[in-house]
Amino acid sequence: MITLHKPARHHEDSLIDPPTQCHVRTACIDDVPDVASIHVRSWRAAYVSILPAEYLNGLSVARRTEVWTRVVKQGKPNLILAVKGSSALGFAAWGASRDADATQSVAEVEACYVDPDHWRTGAGRALFQVLKRAAEEQRFQRVTVWVLEENYPARRFYEAHGFRHEDRKRQLTIGGQSVEEHRYVCDIG
C-alpha cells in the first residue's frame, strides 16, 4: 500500500521507484519554484510546433508559481514530484475527474510534465506508477488524461503506460489558437 504524506522537508516521506532510481513524493511549498520552472520549460519544448511562439515565449514562471502555490496550499489537486538527488525532474497533478460524464470512481491527470533535460529518463514512468497506485488506494477505478491532438510524443507515452484513446474530443483556445484535445483512459482498479 502506498500512502503519500506531505514531507516536512524535501528528503522525508519519499517513495523510491527502483527501475529509475528517482524518488516520487508529495510536493511541498518549497518545491513550487521547481514545479513552475518545469511547467514553463516543458510547455516551451513540447508545444513548440503546436502553439504560437509568442504565446510560449510569454509564459511566466512567476505566474505559474502563483498557481502552484495555491494548489499546494489547498491540497487539491494532488501534486507529486519526481526528484533525483537534489534535482526536480518532473511533476504530476491529479485528483477526481472534472469531466461532466465522470463517475466518482474516475480520477484525472490534470498535468504531467517532465523537465526537457530529463525526458526519456524514466521520471514520467515513475510519476505514473506512483500516481496510479495512489489513485487505486483512494478507490479510483480509472484514470483519464486530456492530450493535445498534435502532441504525438505524449500520446505515445500514455499508450505505452496503459492508457487507451477514447472517442472523446474537445476544442480549446490556447494562445489565440484553436486546438483539439483527446481523452485517454486507463483502468486501474
Score class of each variant (00 low, 15 high):
residue 10 H to A: 14
residue 12 E to S: 07
residue 13 D to A: 14
residue 14 S to L: 11
residue 18 P to K: 05
residue 18 P to C: 04
residue 18 P to Y: 01
residue 23 H to Q: 13
residue 27 A to S: 14
residue 27 A to F: 11
residue 28 C to Q: 12
residue 30 D to T: 11
residue 30 D to R: 10
residue 33 P to F: 07
residue 36 A to Y: 07
residue 40 V to S: 11
residue 40 V to R: 12
residue 44 R to M: 11
residue 48 V to G: 11
residue 51 L to Q: 03
residue 51 L to S: 04
residue 52 P to I: 05
residue 52 P to S: 09
residue 53 A to D: 11
residue 54 E to G: 13
residue 54 E to M: 00
residue 54 E to S: 12
residue 54 E to T: 07
residue 54 E to Q: 04
residue 55 Y to M: 07
residue 58 G to A: 08
residue 59 L to C: 06
residue 60 S to V: 09
residue 61 V to R: 11
residue 66 E to D: 12
residue 67 V to M: 15
residue 69 T to S: 14
residue 71 V to P: 08
residue 78 N to R: 02
residue 80 I to S: 00
residue 82 A to F: 01
residue 85 G to L: 07
residue 89 L to P: 01
residue 89 L to M: 13
residue 90 G to N: 06
residue 90 G to T: 06
residue 90 G to C: 03
residue 91 F to R: 03
residue 91 F to T: 04
residue 92 A to N: 08
residue 92 A to W: 00
residue 92 A to T: 07
residue 92 A to P: 00
residue 98 R to A: 10
residue 102 A to G: 02
residue 104 Q to M: 08
residue 104 Q to W: 05
residue 109 V to S: 05
residue 111 A to R: 08
residue 112 C to I: 15
residue 112 C to T: 10
residue 114 V to L: 08
residue 115 D to W: 05
residue 116 P to D: 06
residue 116 P to R: 05
residue 117 D to R: 09
residue 118 H to Y: 15
